[in-house]
Design a protein around this nucleic acid. Structure first.
Lengths: 204, 204
DNA sequence: ACCTGAACACCGTTCAAGT
DNA sequence: ACCTGAACACCGTTCAAGT
């Protein structure tokens, strides 16, 4: 059985199948992808050099649909622009929560993500924030988004009141939202705190 | 060859060896741990039920050395207490950067970590922050610490100026610290921004 | 150029057998 | 109670052979 007249596989199809598997099962193997696509495991290596590269292809796919910063810029304050950008960034993760550990465990090599940093640098620079701290600020915002993305898969059991020793924590858990709603509210709060802090940091 | 007069293994010895392997190589296998301890792979299962449980044992070991909040409380403002707690929390990660992806990929079941949340709840509650938002605030701080911990293994290549398209980002990269120093400075900045924001949130 | 089959060097985990 | 040896059902990856 030699090569088909039209290719059965592509990096895109492989990445899409892998995303689907992670969404459904929390993981993926080369064999599972191959089986889903009706092909042999070794066939994948005509399109991809390693499992790590499949993860990078998944990352590209997740972030390529993110709207560019320009589409949000008209008439908005820099705070609104940053807020919108970070929310899109987090929402891209949130669309596939179980994928997050794979993406955060591995070094970024996708240009789609570098574009996000580019956009942030442009917005923050135009806002008048000190150039000497620009990368630090970007890192803070990036860290918060990534931490919040990981929070999406924290099961409510982590906040199991049964394990909390202090009355304060038990009470806090009892009056909190659960699941996705809780994660969303926390993300918005963090955004408020960070942007409020940046506003008093020399921005115009 | 039956059981030895005195046990060759323990959960602690297994976890310590695994941490050492991750520090040195970035990963660990059951076989590597066994070889290091002069034992057969199957022997580990007399002390541990799975690889996941080894990771939890590593987590315990990493955080058990963290000082309790009480030891920092005397005469300090709540901001100083939170700052000190979060810094210890992050430093525990920072002592083993390559371990971070393993810890963040897996759900927490270690009481040592729950203790950190307990301490945060107690400090923030005493500070007068609204009880209804306590868990959200803890989540924000936790997300930031975890995101910052993952930033520790981001190689400087991520910030490779060659890939940055905008002049703003290229300039920011050029004038930034690199490696651990950059990560430390960013973490301190994030702490300032978040605590500053919390101060204007109804805290006394 | 691209799919296949066979092979390689691993994985984590189980379990009856030993003392 | 705890270590062993053998076995099981997988892993990701390589590569010569086919069209």
């Amino acid at each position: 059985m030699g090569r088909p007249t039209t290719p059965l596989l592509s990096t895109e199809r492989i990445a899409a199948t892998a995303i689907d598997l992670v969404d459904r099962t929390g993981g993926f193997t080369i064999a599972q992808i191959a089986k889903t696509l009706g092909v042999r495991p070794s066939s994948l290596y005509n399109h991809v050099t390693s499992k790590a590269q499949i993860i990078e292809a998944m990352r590209s796919r997740i972030f390529e649909t993110m709207p560019a910063a320009e589409s949000r810029a008209t008439g908005a304050t820099w705070e609104q622009q940053v807020r919108s950008l970070l929310r899109s960034y987090r929402d891209a993760f949130a669309a596939h929560p179980r994928l997050v550990p794979f993406l955060t465990a591995q070094t970024v090599s996708a240009p789609d993500v570098m574009r996000i940093y580019d956009d942030m640098a442009r917005i923050l620079s135009a806002a008048g924030l000190p150039h000497s701290r620009l990368l630090d600020i970007i890192t803070v915002l990036d860290s918060f988004v990534i931490g919040s993305a990981l929070d999406l898969i924290a099961p409510d059991e982590v906040w199991d009141a049964g394990q909390a020793k202090s009355a304060e924590l038990r009470e806090a858990i009892a009056s909190a939202d659960s699941g996705r709603l809780r994660a969303d509210r926390s993300f918005d709060l963090g955004l408020d705190l960070l942007l409020g802090g940046l506003a008093g940091f020399g921005a115009r």
